[in-house]
Amino acid sequence: MTTTTVDRAQVGEVAILRIAGDVTSASDAELTGGFGAALDAGARAVVLDFAAMEYMNSGGIGLLVTLLVRAQRAGARLLAIGLSDHYRQILSLTRLDEAIEILPDEAAAMAAVAR
């Protein structure tokens, strides 16, 4: 099993978290930490970039739920980009796609946030 790395970039009120490796319950510190830092830095929208994600289990989905709840309570938007068809299906199965905006890439996410 590989570990999770989360690199954060911030452009104005939009934060991009680039997630690489495995997303499991063990990813809590990296994901929650990156997400919290984005909100603390004033992000009103957080884009999760899954292009380099290699694996996600149900613990990882649970983490996404807690991030989504935190985003809702903070009045921030949560968007996802870089999802393969496989992971799009998983977000559909778990009905997370009803609450997370799924877009193909960073340009589309930035355009969605700007609208």
Partner: peptide
């Protein structure tokens, strides 16, 4: 992906 067979289909 490594988790391919672990998830239910939508």
């Amino acid at each position: 992906p490594r988790d391919d067979g672990n998830w239910a289909q939508p």
